Amino acid sequence: MAKILVTDDALFMRMQLKDILQKLGHEVVGEAENGRDAIHKFQELQPDVITMDITMPEMDGVEACKEIKKLNADAKVIMCSAMGQQGMIIDAIQAGAKDFIVKPFAANRIQEAIEKVL
């Protein structure tokens, strides 16, 4: 069981991902609605894994991933995006993301990504 911080600007997406993660037996320790929020919650909650939407207001997921990796090089970030654009995936991996999930979420793909990063 992993402690997970879910980051997405859309409440519906956070709820959907949280539901899947809990059914898979993981603990969702917090939610963040933008990259800046995710950085604060990461420091506060020390989750095992952070799921990070790419496109968000205030600070996007790629920037937030870079900042989190500066705070803790071992941080495990899984990027989530509705846009399976090659460029964004490359940006996310270069920023330090360990894996990438495309929306809509599939439970088996989420579990696979979590197992891969842990």
Rank of each mutant, 00 (worst) to 15 (best):
M1P: 15
A2Y: 06
K3R: 13
L5M: 03
V6Q: 03
V6Y: 07
D8G: 01
D8Q: 01
D9M: 02
A10L: 13
L11Q: 10
L11V: 14
L11I: 14
M13I: 15
M13A: 12
M13K: 00
M15G: 08
Q16C: 09
Q16V: 14
Q16Y: 10
Q16L: 13
L17P: 11
K18P: 13
K18F: 11
D19C: 07
D19V: 07
I20D: 07
Q22S: 12
K23A: 14
K23R: 14
L24I: 09
L24F: 12
G25E: 04
H26K: 02
E27S: 12
V28F: 04
V28K: 00
V28Q: 01
E31N: 01
E31L: 08
E31T: 03
A32M: 02
E33T: 10
N34M: 04
G35Q: 06
G35R: 00
D37W: 07
I39M: 09
I39Q: 06
H40A: 13
K41W: 09
K41C: 10
Q43R: 13
Q43V: 13
Q43M: 15
E44M: 10
E44V: 08
E44P: 08
E44H: 07
L45R: 01
Q46F: 07
P47E: 00
D48V: 08
D48S: 02
I50F: 06
T51R: 02
T51H: 04
T51F: 03
D53I: 01
D53Q: 03
I54C: 05
T55A: 12
M56C: 07
P57N: 00
P57M: 00
P57K: 00
E58Y: 08
E58D: 11
E58P: 05
M59K: 03
D60C: 04
G61M: 03
A64K: 03
A64E: 05
A64Q: 08
A64R: 05
I68T: 10
K69R: 08
K69E: 09
L71S: 05
D74R: 07
D74S: 14
A75G: 10
A75C: 07
K76G: 06
K76R: 14
V77F: 04
V77D: 03
V77H: 01
M79D: 00
C80P: 07
S81R: 08
A82W: 09
M83P: 11
Q85S: 15
Q85G: 12
Q85A: 10
Q85E: 15
G87F: 13
G87Q: 12
M88L: 14
M88V: 06
M88G: 09
I89T: 04
I89E: 15
I90P: 07
D91K: 05
A92D: 06
Q94P: 11
A95Y: 05
G96P: 14
D99C: 02
F100A: 01
I101Q: 02
V102E: 12
K103E: 06
K103Q: 03
F105E: 02
A106R: 12
A107P: 14
A107Y: 04
A107M: 11
N108T: 13
N108D: 15
N108V: 11
R109T: 10
R109A: 14
I110A: 03
I110Q: 04
I110N: 01
E112I: 06
A113N: 05
A113M: 06
A113V: 09
A113C: 08
I114V: 15
K116Q: 10
K116N: 09
V117D: 00
V117K: 00
V117G: 02
L118P: 11
L118H: 08
L118F: 15
L118I: 15
